[in-house]
């Protein structure tokens, strides 16, 4: 079992610093929500498509990791189109009647725009997880949160927790399956009615919990044996560096922001 959707590669999008990608994603999200009008949406769209092309992510991987959400996007469009704003009173160009529902050109446009926004949001977050190893994302987030240590945000501990969770989830998932099979060999039946089912559930959860504690215990000991004492006195091997590509990406985001903000507020 593998966790996350990371597809190894060496494209520009892969080489960007994780911090750049996180900040880009945040900026993109804000611009997508703040901007309105065709031009703003078009600019965002162009930006996302460019990002997709640059990242060279196989479309099949993109589809596999996001097919679940396509239904949600279509539903959003449908709801907006069907239940969206009706034509202003007295307007003559009423649109199409569909039973009790009325579809207007404006409603349809707004529905499509909402769907497009949601789709772009999904696309850009997928592009980040597809081109960034989970651990790099965690390390990037830790770096970005570091200034907040002064106000008590435990950035290092949060990052360590996330990293260990990433490391152990596949092993625990396998273990859960093994325990389920072992208890089934002893007659436990998760489909059984009533108390038998409860007993079967307990027979699965308690060994799993015990295993988590056992692992945590051993891992803590092993970390201590390797000289871990928390963040104090610790250095990092991987020093992320902002490079030229990061600067270029930042410039492009600034350009996008200018585009979106000007077209949205110039009117």
């Amino acid at each position: 079992m593998t966790l996350g959707q990371y597809v190894a590669g060496n494209s520009v999008a892969h080489r960007l610093d994780a911090r750049t990608k996180i900040l880009m994603a945040l900026a993109f999200m804000v611009l997508l929500l703040v901007g309105h009008g065709l031009w703003a949406l078009g600019a965002c769209c162009a930006f996302a498509v460019a990002w997709l092309l640059v990242s060279r992510v196989p479309l099949s991987a993109l589809w596999r990791s996001n097919r679940g959400i396509v239904g949600l996007i279509l539903l959003t469009i449908a709801l907006d189109v069907l239940l969206g704003p009706t034509a202003p009173a007295g307007a003559t160009s009423a649109g199409w009647h569909l039973g009790p529902l009325l579809i207007t050109a404006r409603g349809a446009a707004e529905g499509l725009a909402a769907g497009l926004r949601l789709g772009l949001l999904v696309l850009q977050s997928a592009l980040i997880t597809l081109t960034t190893a989970p651990l790099d994302l965690v390390a990037g987030a830790e770096r970005l949160l570091r200034p907040l240590r002064r106000i008590g945000v435990p950035a290092h501990e949060l990052a360590l927790m996330a990293g260990l969770a990433l490391r152990f989830i596949p092993a625990l998932a396998e273990e859960a399956q093994r325990i389920a099979l072992a208890q089934a060999a002893r007659g436990a039946d998760l489909q059984a009615p009533g108390r038998a089912r409860l007993r079967a559930l307990i027979s699965l959860l308690i060994p799993l919990l015990l295993s988590v504690f056992r692992r945590a215990d051993q891992l803590a000991l092993a970390m201590e044996a390797r000289g871990y004492r928390g963040e104090e006195g610790r250095t990092r091997w991987r020093q992320p560096h902002f490079r030229q590509v990061d600067a270029v990406a930042a410039a492009l985001v600034v350009a996008l922001a200018a585009c979106v903000l000007l077209t949205s507020w110039a009117r």
């Binding site: 190893a133 260990l164 692992r215 970390m223 390797r226 610790r234 250095t235 091997w237």
Partner: peptide
């Protein structure tokens, strides 16, 4: 061995001890 490996990448795990010693990258 499963319960003493800290990182999700082999070389990052090896780096864990030296990092704790505060060595330069």
């Amino acid at each position: 061995p499963d319960n003493q490996i800290v990182a999700s990448v082999v070389e990052d795990d090896v780096a864990f001890g030296p990092e704790n010693l505060g060595l330069p990258p």
